[in-house]
Design a protein around this nucleic acid. Sequence first.
DNA 1: CTTAATTCCTATTATTCCGATAGGATTTAA
DNA 2: TTAAATCCTATCGGAATAATAGGAATTAAG
Lengths: 136, 136
Amino acid sequence: MLSKKTKYGLKALTYLAKQEGNQPVQISAISKDENISRKFLESILLTLRKNGFLGSKKGKLGGYYLLKDPKDIKMSSVMRILEGPIAMVPCVSLNFYEKCDDCPDETACTVHNLMTEVRDSTLHIFNNTSLADLIK
Amino acid sequence: MLSKKTKYGLKALTYLAKQEGNQPVQISAISKDENISRKFLESILLTLRKNGFLGSKKGKLGGYYLLKDPKDIKMSSVMRILEGPIAMVPCVSLNFYEKCDDCPDETACTVHNLMTEVRDSTLHIFNNTSLADLIK
DNA sequence: CTTAATTCCTATTATTCCGATAGGATTTAA
DNA sequence: TTAAATCCTATCGGAATAATAGGAATTAAG
């Protein structure tokens, strides 16, 4: 299941990408238009900023804006920041790998092999979809 | 993330599919060989039985066995029983659909559209992989 | 007939994670 | 100087997950 954090984060990015120009947009505007809890959204935008997707302007008339061209924001990177691993099991994750406690031999594990296939196909989509593609 | 329930369930099905003949296999044997908590596995096998994948024999020398040919056990059906929806968001699920609270218009939702793509590709794999394919 | 070994069933507990909230510090435009 | 915004850290409640407990029912074998 996709967390609300990721879902809201994607909606916020979409919202910002649709803006004319690149003026700062206030949290409360996004929160209201997209029906997202204001405080929760605040924390999400903060992590997107800390990870280089967004810039912010403080104080009155402040807000958030995209730092990169939507064409250069790949879904795979957004997903990894907000959701964490793309793979369904840690032993299959490229960026968040963890060995399973059970399972002496990964290459012989049917679950591992099946989930590798799933990861590949999902990753293919996320690597080839940008924020710009979403708003087309 | 794949739940342990699903992971263990898949491992147990694999284990049973690898058996010679179709003699009942005891929970404790699977539990031991696959490093799965015995009681937890017990409840998983129970749901697999109640959903028509497994048969059981009670009493001494009892155990579980496959009811169908591994070729006829599709990953999509196993996943839906053990894990629930295959889609990452309920508004995209074919078998567990739920409308989002936010989001007035699904067809205009970028998250919805992206996740539909992901569901399609994942489902394609699960629909075209059987238990027999796993043990090849 | 008795015993041991097994599944069956329901309930309960422990733990973790998620979504949301709180409240004040800091910054800035007007 | 004030109002409006982001920044930051901490915390909380509830839901879901993983696991455990304990006994009832069933059956093979001696």
